[in-house]
């Protein structure tokens, strides 16, 4: 172990940690607003990466059919749930959101994909294909359960995760894919070489965190989300549509997940089932942050990335064990520090 190796490991840890940080943020966001522990977050990473990789080779990704299917399911669920209060305007809006939108995205993808429009448009298209799946999932699986206990929501989330892994195998196949990066540049700082893609990841993570901060502090939607997170009933009393908050939280989580996927696709090979482990590490970070604090979760994610990178150097056979063991002292410390609070249900 010398200074060069140390630097490379830290760099590797920070880049991986940045991805975990994005996932941890969206886990905290979804949990705060809807109380759902969003296990399928990792699947959005895998879907985003594989969709982007398919577009990168000029193919129409299989995920567009999943998007259309989920949209239809969301439409049926939405109509059923609102069957007593349905107006012509609401119906039109629902059909536009859940049937016309996926069809339009699919048509666009089918038109654009064979023309290989370059990484930026491909990345945006991948985001457009994967992101709407999250609000559709919310409508299909979680909206009807919105008032259920955390445990019931967790079980529903595990079910959604299993279904999405299975569908991933159907739509993307068992083999992994890799994509072209946003940048092939390799920068050298003395003995340390930094890939352009790594800078993109860290840079976009920082930008996204800033944007989220702005969103929560300064926009009406952001404030409504925070209000829902603080007190669901109170938020409803002051006229915030809490179901709408859920949809927004899921949309954000889906977009962040898909973006993480697009970012890591050029760095590593992604498989239909890669997402779970990546998501779990984001979850570890979110837990360290107490599932409540965004800055704590982001810092914890960087820590998880660095622990992972160093343990893969020192004891690669025990890497996952070491990474997930990090959570134990934190839980101990938290339980000692805070007085016992009964779960508020």
């Amino acid at each position: 172990m010398d200074a060069t190796i140390l630097l490379i490991l830290v760099q590797d840890g920070v880049v991986n940690g940045a991805i975990y940080a994005l996932l941890a943020l969206s886990l905290v966001l979804v949990f705060a607003v809807t109380r759902v522990i969003f296990i399928p977050q990792g699947e959005f990473v895998a879907y985003g990466a594989l969709t982007y990789a398919a577009l990168d080779t000029g193919q129409l990704p299989g995920s567009v059919w999943l998007l259309c299917g989920l949209g239809l399911a969301a439409c049926v669920c939405g109509l059923w749930q609102q069957r007593r209060t349905l107006t012509a305007g609401a119906t039109t809006r629902l059909v536009l959101q859940t049937v016309v939108l996926p069809a339009a995205i699919t048509a666009l993808a089918a038109f654009v994909a064979p023309r290989k429009p370059g990484v930026l448009i491909e990345a945006l298209l991948a985001l457009a294909i994967v992101t709407p799946m999250a609000p559709y999932l919310y409508r299909v699986a979680f909206q009807a359960l919105a008032e259920a206990s955390v445990l019931v929501l967790l079980i529903a989330a595990v079910g959604v995760h299993l279904a999405m892994v299975g569908l991933g195998l159907v739509f993307f196949g068992p083999e992994g894919s890799r994509a072209t990066g946003f940048s092939d540049a390799v920068l050298s700082f003395g003995a340390l070489t930094v890939q352009g893609q790594a800078l993109w990841i860290v840079g976009l993570t920082v930008v996204l965190m800033g944007a989220l901060y702005g969103f929560f502090e300064f926009t009406l939607f952001g404030k409504a989300l925070r209000a829902t997170a603080v007190n669901r009933l109170g938020a409803r009393l002051v006229g915030i549509a809490t179901a709408q908050s859920g949809v927004i939280a899921f949309t954000l989580a889906g977009a962040i997940g898909a973006l993480s996927g697009v970012l890591i696709a050029p760095l590593t090979t992604v498989y239909y089932d890669t997402g779970f482990l990546v998501g779990l590490k984001g979850f570890t970070a979110a837990i360290i942050g107490g599932l409540a604090s965004y800055p704590a979760a982001a810092l914890a994610a960087i820590l998880v990335g660095i622990v992972e990178s160093f343990s893969s150097f020192w004891a690669s056979a025990f890497k996952e064990v070491i990474v997930f063991t990090v959570i134990i002292p934190v839980l101990l410390w938290r339980s000692l520090r805070s007085t016992a609070v009964e779960e508020d249900e």
Binding site: I5, I8, L9, D12, V15, N16, I19, I264, L267, T268, V270, Y271, D273, T274, F276, L277, V278, E308, S309, F310, S311, S312, F313, W314, S316, A317, K319, E320
Partner: peptide, 20 residues
């Protein structure tokens, strides 16, 4: 002698140790 998991997204640590 290094090990990694099928779903790992980075093996930089292992590779550095091998190359050392």
């Amino acid at each position: 002698l290094e090990r990694y998991a099928r779903t790992d997204t980075s093996v930089t640590g292992q590779v550095l140790k091998l190359m050392a």
